[in-house]
Simulated assay, not measured.
Amino acid sequence: MPPLRAIACIDDDSSVLEAMGYFLRSAGYSAFAFASAEDFLNFSDISALYCLITDVKLGGISGMQLLRQLAASGLAVPAIVITAFDDEALRAQSVAAGAIGFLRKPVHEGELLGLLQTCGER
């Protein structure tokens, strides 16, 4: 079982994963990095996660498809969507897919911390 406040980060850009992992650990979270949604789906303790942070555009299953798949499977993990493409339609799709937040890259650390606090209130 992952430690309390464990966060899974999914992004196909290794530099984003590295930076996100460093930031999350410095903020007191545990971070698990995945280069694809498919890799993440092989993680054994999805339901024990504090939060999931996923990019929208991934090779293979997209971040949106992943959120829909998790919801259909009954795995309610608070999710934050990050993307380099900020548009209202994408934001609305994220919320409709179950995301608690939508952030544009580069991610502002204060906004991310605020959303992560929201995860703990659920």
Rank of each mutant, 00 (worst) to 15 (best):
G120N: 14
A97P: 04
L116E: 09
L49Q: 06
G74W: 12
G28H: 12
F43Y: 12
V95I: 15
L17C: 04
E111I: 03
A84T: 11
E111G: 03
I7P: 00
L115M: 14
I61L: 15
L41Y: 07
I61G: 03
I100N: 04
R104T: 13
F85I: 14
G63N: 02
L113T: 05
G110T: 04
S36R: 06
A96H: 07
L52N: 04
D87C: 15
P78T: 14
T83P: 00
V16P: 01
F43R: 06
I100A: 06
R122G: 10
Y50I: 07
A35P: 13
I53T: 01
S15V: 11
N42V: 07
D87T: 14
G74K: 15
V16M: 08
L41K: 13
L103T: 07
I7M: 05
K57F: 06
V77D: 09
F40D: 13
L90A: 03
P3D: 09
C9Q: 03
I10F: 06
I61P: 02
D86Y: 11
A71F: 02
F43I: 07
L41C: 13
E121T: 05
L115P: 05
A92D: 07
N42C: 12
S30D: 11
L70D: 02
Y29L: 07
L116N: 10
G120D: 14
P3F: 08
K105G: 00
S26E: 14
S73V: 05
L70Q: 04
L4F: 11
P106Y: 03
E121F: 01
L17P: 00
Y29R: 08
F23L: 13
R5Q: 06
S94H: 00
